[in-house]
Computed example of a mutant assay.
Amino acid sequence: MNLSLNIHRLSLQAQAVWWRSLMGIGMYLHRAAPPLPLSPSFVRDIDTTLAVHRRGSIRLVFYTPPDYGRPGNSKRYPCIVNFHGGGFTMGTATDDARWATAVVQQADTIVCSVDYRRAPEFPFPTAVEDGADAVMWIWDHASELGIDPNKIGVSGFSAGGNMAITVPLRLQDALLRRRGAEPPQVSSDAPVVLEHEHRVVKLVIAWYPPTDYTRTREERRKSNRRPDKELPTFFTKLFDAAYLYPPKEVMLDSPYLSPGAASDELLQFLPEDFLLYTCEWDELLAEGEMFRDRLRALGKGVKYRMIEGVRHGWDKSPNPLRPDPVAQEWYQEACQEIKRVFHGQ
């Protein structure tokens, strides 16, 4: 049985490596269209602290405004910590370079894109733990990075959109434990509030995220308005088998996997400002709308957009001739919200 599982994991890894290489070509073409996106300004490699059984390092890729680091510039910038998509299995931190460019140029905000470790080599909950480690490190080193620690947000696409929601929950748990307080799952009418560490993340921007893994793939597919626009089944099977390991042992209702199944008490720890974007032709649309309704019922200031006539991952088209004008439009709207939250504009 163990031999069979090992062979299966090796097969998944081989598949993941193959598709990562093809996705890398697609993302190269995506970034090649004029105008070219920004190149990373610098990188940092940090040690993990939360994935106690899977120690390692995480690469953080920073994109900065043009006046960042200039002599005499003592400005402290907001920072958006971004998580790429790819089913927790594929993708890299530079995949969202066009999004990072929009945020830097239109919102005068630093972007840190996280090269979290991927499945099947690093299954759940490694990605979420790496994401929380990244935000915590940035918060701890904000002064030397030129970042305002009171203006940190997160964003993400697809699997990264899931992380944009689950990382703040995992981070809050880590910070409370670091202070010796009760974790946020505690059932209480008055949750623990820690000065300077309560809700470090002030803004969430989640693009077409999965929010509820308690829903089967069959249930999700049946909810799609255009099944012909669906992600290929072999991709979703690969993603689930790679990330949800060991099979039948992962708690699918874990708040760090399925925030849509989390308790109201825990969801209260999410920030008040929340942007949620879904796709009309996507199996994740229905659960995204249910999650929106839950957050609004909790009094969160959710700005929601269902982008019409697009499929999952619509903004990552590998077109080397020109970027997607629809993506530019929605990126601009999201940047306006970043300016409102962090710059008061």
Rank of each mutant, 00 (worst) to 15 (best):
D228L: 01
T211Y: 03
G180D: 05
A107H: 01
A174R: 12
L284I: 05
R98W: 03
A181S: 15
I338E: 10
P320T: 03
G85N: 05
Y245M: 07
Q345F: 12
Y304L: 07
H30I: 09
R311S: 15
Y63V: 10
A174S: 14
N82H: 12
D293K: 14
V61R: 00
H196S: 15
V81T: 02
W207L: 09
E230Q: 14
F42Q: 05
G24H: 00
D148H: 08
G160W: 10
V111A: 11
V250A: 02
W137S: 10
P271F: 12
L275Q: 07
D47G: 13
R296E: 14
Y208A: 05
N82P: 00
I58Y: 04
V81L: 00
M290L: 15
G56A: 11
M306Y: 00
M136W: 15
G309A: 06
A261H: 03
E195M: 13
L267C: 06
D140W: 06
G160V: 10
S11M: 11
Y213P: 03
L275M: 09
L169G: 02
V341C: 08
D115P: 03
G160F: 11
G69E: 09
A119F: 07
Q268W: 13
G161T: 01
A334C: 14
C335S: 08
L145P: 01
P227V: 00
A97W: 00
K222N: 09
L5D: 14
L295V: 03
Q336E: 14
M1V: 11
P168I: 05
G69V: 06
T92D: 15
N224E: 09
P37F: 08
A190P: 00
G301N: 15
A206M: 01
K229S: 13
H196E: 14
G288V: 00
D133H: 08
A14D: 09
E197C: 14
W99H: 07
T89L: 00
E182D: 15
A174M: 07
I338R: 03
Q106C: 06
S263Y: 02
W99M: 10
T233S: 11
Q106D: 13
G301I: 01
L60S: 10
A261R: 01
N73M: 05
A334E: 05
V250D: 03
L22K: 12
P40L: 01
I307P: 01
P191C: 06
E121F: 05
P149I: 03
W207P: 06
L285Y: 12
P71R: 08
C79N: 02
V135Y: 03
P123G: 02
D130E: 04
G180Y: 00
G91N: 06
V302P: 07
V52H: 07
T166S: 10
R31H: 12
A164E: 02
E121Y: 05
A32D: 01
G180W: 02
Q106R: 15
N150A: 13
H196K: 15
R76M: 14
Y331S: 12
R76E: 15
D47L: 11
E287C: 10
T211H: 04
A142H: 07
W137H: 14
P71S: 11
G69D: 08
P35N: 03
